[in-house]
Design a protein around this nucleic acid. Structure first.
Length: 893
RNA sequence: GGGCGGUUAGCUCAGUUGGUUAGAGCGUCUGACUUACAUUCAGAAGGUCAGAGGUUCGAGUCCUCUACCGCCCACCA
């Protein structure tokens, strides 16, 4: 009563959700502290970028995590969801650079220190946006523990790891080709240099063979300016055409340098001429060929995209100008065989669209093979499992072919590489680089105090891969820290998108094993990608995003969460449109109204949920059994990460069993003693209460709101549904009640169907005669239910037909005939035709069943249970046919 | 070029180890303001489970091949 009066028929999620989130957070319900008396359950959040705003992918990802956390919290685990954000080096730096650009400034104008101050300022101001948005979603993280990958302690861990790996010989410096934007003058990650289909030309160029006048080897290239940096021509070792040329020299056009002709499997004999020019300094593939064959790598294009001194006569020219010029020169020399139009993929700077220049430079690497081996082992041994399991193969395949990891980035925002060089007179000395935990004061080799730190910062993933333990202040030498780690690590489940399986997941496994000596998590749940309803990935640039916050505003976080989970099958991509969220919105509305109704129905005298076994009616036994079945199923589904299955079962139970049937049946008061009615009220409240706990991980807000309203009426044992026990022990399953109530339901369904067919109005209440031996007792008991739900007048149950009612619509169920008395509405001929049709169908079915049951192999090999079932079905079919035939004869006669 | 996913009702998709007459949501059609809910209720129509072959007493489900769609990886100049 208190509360029920204010309950309007429209649920208002906005107010409810912000109110409860605040309460939960204030009361510390999200917090998890070490508690040896309870088992921990830990999830680390895949840290969103500080620049991030919540998109649908986050919404899906974090809903899964929140369901897992809330579920386990209710199961009694000490559940910790560790939150935080990632500094996201390049992305964040770009955001701040863009902001500066509006004031007409470049980062170089500010200088490193000032620029970093700007980034930090930006981070303080906007970095918590996504955290606030996660709260709107209902995320039950322990926010006290929120970490950032650039926190001081975290940076300590990063440095520790670098030093550790360096000392172990797993970090080294080497030359590498990176994506370089000559306009922005910065290195770009592969994903920041998207390949675009570009119309270009394929130039066929003749390289004369040294010492064999008039003989050529023709190569094809899209970038003739790189000829100047060629140090070899390569052919496939099995290519008969060129076999005799391997080992000989070709003369590089223009520069007239002699370069070797080499054989390498990399060359595809089918493409172009089957001969490839090798430019190790300006093509990533050629770079590796060059490595294998110990070729020189002259740099002919500089960081501004201009030709270097090594380009000889072209020095100082722009790379594209040079291309034109060199093509002309080749033509003049008669070395240009032909030019073809050619469409190929070229990397472009995602910021200014400049064509990327592959650029050779010195970078830091991590040797991956030694780290990968144990990480392969734990997956093969099943210590870490992927859900869905198909990702196991993808993971192993990548790990077994792993390449060394380039960890240096030429940007400013990030963890500065902890390497110092000994410098004298502005030049690096031959002293080895200094790599220490403490900033060095002097070179340990020569005592020189003029030390210069490496300019570069570390790849963002070099800090992210430590997330599962660095967030717990590892490797701080502190008993508290150690105890915390010992308790919460390894974590349980990692929930993420497959896009970062290699970037992040695989590396966390390696880091966990290397630094903790233990796997970082045991389960990896990989969910699908969120797409729009035409199948395109949702992205800002495509303009096809559906903003989760808008959906939350409009329909509530519960509706958003439930809709997402319900329509996303395990590991499948999900195609979204705004209308799909109506599913969840309508469900909240249904829950709200059913609850409102139940609360209003409860009699003053009803003070507890303890229903009395002896007073149970069929429908009560039925709904209780269905509830217990649901509890069992939901736990099974959740244990197997089948979130959508759990959600859909809960939905179906509540809407189509509990509301459509049970709630309706309990409205009948005729023939129900007072105490039985009171008992049903208790069951209504009981089912609702269990249902709320069952649903809570999916829809935390509305369940809490209603739970508290219920609490005003009943002495519920829990302060909050958040900390209530999850229903898990299935109560008794009452198969008899389920079967019998299904009989009643099908009788009602048949009658409703017939009513609709003849177009009866709701107010029309025809009488009914039911003839049945099998269900006579049951139907006699359930007369009121049938009468009420099928909107009938008088019902007579007979065990045999005394006299066929003349004006009646007949129906047949196994073991049952029904006669709906409809004076003046029956067309005998039409009736006859309808029954004839049913007889025909019935005979077909019987024939099919008899064929099956006369098959000896079936009888011999199928399980007895199946055979029994089929036999019973045949009996029912025969019974139905018999009744139909009797009906027909009756009508004819 | 490899690997993976998908193809089931008009649309979007479920369908756990092979076992009744293959389900849901939306949409469509018919009817209803039946005092919790029109974000609702009752009812209906709609499927040779992409195609072919195989295994089996029995296949949407397992195997092989084909077609189309999509994704990921890869060094085609």
């Amino acid at each position: 009563m208190a509360g029920t009066k204010e309950m309007s028929s429209r649920y208002r999620p906005g107010e409810v959700e912000s109110r409860w989130y605040k309460v939960w957070e204030e009361r510390g319900y999200f917090n998890a502290d070490r508690d040896p008396s309870r088992k921990p359950y830990t999830i680390v959040i895949p840290p969103p970028n500080v620049t991030g705003i919540l998109h649908m992918g986050h919404a899906l990802n974090n809903t899964y995590q929140d369901i897992l956390i809330r579920y386990h919290r209710m199961l009694g685990y000490n559940a910790l969801w560790m939150p935080g954000t990632d500094h996201a080096g390049i992305a964040t730096q770009n955001v701040v650079e863009r902001k500066l650009a509006k004031q007409g400034l470049r980062r170089q104008d500010l200088g490193r220190e000032k620029f970093l101050e700007e980034v930090w300022k930006w981070k303080e101001e906007y970095g918590s946006t996504i955290i606030r948005q996660l709260k709107r979603l209902g995320a039950s993280c322990d926010w006290r523990r929120t970490r950032f990958t650039m926190d001081e302690d975290y940076s300590y861990a990063v440095r520790y790891v670098f030093v550790h790996l360096y000392k172990k010989g797993l970090i080294y410096q080497g030359n590498y080709i990176i994506n370089w934007c000559p306009r922005c003058h910065t290195a770009l990650a592969d994903e920041e240099a998207p390949k675009k289909e570009t119309a270009g030309k394929l130039y066929y160029v003749r390289y004369p063979i040294a010492g064999e006048e008039g003989r050529f080897i023709t190569v094809a290239t899209t970038r003739p300016e790189t000829i100047l940096g060629d140090t070899a021509v390569a052919v496939n070792p099995n290519d008969e055409r060129y076999k005799d040329l391997v080992g000989k020299k070709a003369i590089l056009p223009v520069l007239k340098r002699e370069i070797p002709i080499i054989a390498d499997d990399y060359v595809d004999p089918e493409f172009g001429t089957g001969a490839v020019k090798i430019t190790p300094a300006h093509d990533p593939d050629d770079f590796w060929v060059g490595k294998r064959h110990h070729l020189e790598a002259p740099v002919v294009i500089d960081s501004h995209g201009r030709m270097t001194e090594l380009a000889g006569p072209y020095a100082g020219m722009d790379r594209f100008e040079c291309r034109k010029k060199i093509v002309e020169d080749l033509k003049k020399e008669g070395l240009l065989e032909k030019v073809e139009d050619y469409v190929h993929n070229v990397g472009h700077c995602y910021r200014c669209d400049t064509v990327i220049e592959p650029y050779l430079s010195r970078q830091w690497f991590v040797k991956m093979k030694p780290l990968a081996e144990p990480a392969i082992k734990v997956v093969k041994e099943g210590k870490i499992r992927f859900i869905p399991s198909r990702w196991t193969k993808v993971y192993l395949n990548w790990m077994e072919n792993i390449q060394d990891w380039c960890i240096s980035r030429q940007i400013w925002w990030g963890h500065r590489i902890p390497v110092w060089y000994c410098v004298k007179d502005g030049e690096r000395t031959d002293c080895p680089p200094i790599v220490e935990m403490k900033d060095p004061k002097a070179c340990p080799n020569c005592g020189n105090t003029n030390l210069v730190q490496d300019e570069d910062v570390l790849d963002t993933w070099f800090s992210s891969w430590l997330w599962p333990f660095a967030t717990f202040y590892w490797p701080k030498d502190d008993p508290e820290v150690k105890a915390d780690l010992d308790y919460f690590y390894p974590t349980n489940t990692l929930v993420t998108a497959p896009e970062i399986l290699f970037f992040w997941v695989a590396r966390m496994i390696m880091a966990g094993l290397e630094f903790m000596g233990e796997i970082p998590f045991s389960d990896v749940y990989l969910h699908g990608t969120v797409r729009d309803d035409t199948g395109r990935k949702m992205s800002k640039s495509l303009g096809n995003i559906i903003d989760p916050l808008e959906i939350i505003e409009e329909m509530g976080a519960d509706a958003l969460r439930f809709s997402l989970i319900s329509i996303t099958a395990v590991g499948q991509d999900v195609y979204l449109s705004r209308s799909k969220f109506e599913l969840g919105r309508n469900f909240t509305n249904k829950i709200w109204n059913a609850s409102r109704y139940i609360l209003s129905r409860l009699d003053e005298a009803v003070k507890d949920l303890n229903w009395i076994e002896d007073l149970l009616l069929l429908e009560d036994r039925w709904i209780l059994s269905r509830l217990h079945r649901l509890v069992e199923g939901v736990n099974r589904s959740l244990a197997n990460y089948r979130f959508n299955e759990a959600a859909n079962n809960i939905y179906d139970f509540f809407w189509h069993q509990f509301c459509d049937w049970y709630l309706e049946v309990t409205k009948i008061s005729e023939g129900k003693p007072e105490e039985v009615q009171r008992n049903q009220e208790r069951i209504l409240a009981y089912v609702l209460e269990v249902f709320l706990r069952l649903l809570h991980p999916f829809m935390p807000f509305i369940t809490e709101e209603i739970y508290q309203l219920l609490k005003e009426r009943f002495a519920l044992p829990y302060e909050t549904v958040m900390r209530a026990d999850y229903p898990r022990k299935a109560g008794r399953l009452d198969e008899e009640a389920e079967e019998e109530f299904e009989q009643v339901k099908s009788l009602i369904a048949l009658l409703r169907n017939q009513r609709a067919e003849v177009g009866l109005k709701p107010a029309d209440r025809p009488d009914l005669v039911v003839v049945t031996e099998r269900w006579a007792v049951l139907f006699e008991q359930q007369k009121e239910t049938v009468r009420f739900l099928a909107r009938l007048g008088k019902i007579e149950i007979e065990t045999f037909l005394k006299e066929r009612p003349r004006q009646a619509l007949a129906g047949v169920l196994p073991g049952v005939e029904t006669y709906l008395i409809l004076e003046g509405l029956i067309d005998v001929d039409q009736e006859l035709r309808r029954i004839e049709e049913q007889i025909r169908q019935s005979r077909d079915a019987i024939e099919k069943k008899e064929r099956l049951l006369s098959n000896e192999n079936f009888l011999k090999r199928a399980p007895a249970q199946v055979v029994e079932g089929e036999k019973r079905k045949l009996e029912d079919l025969k019974d139905t046919l018999k009744r139909l035939e009797a009906l027909r004869n009756g009508l004819k006669g």
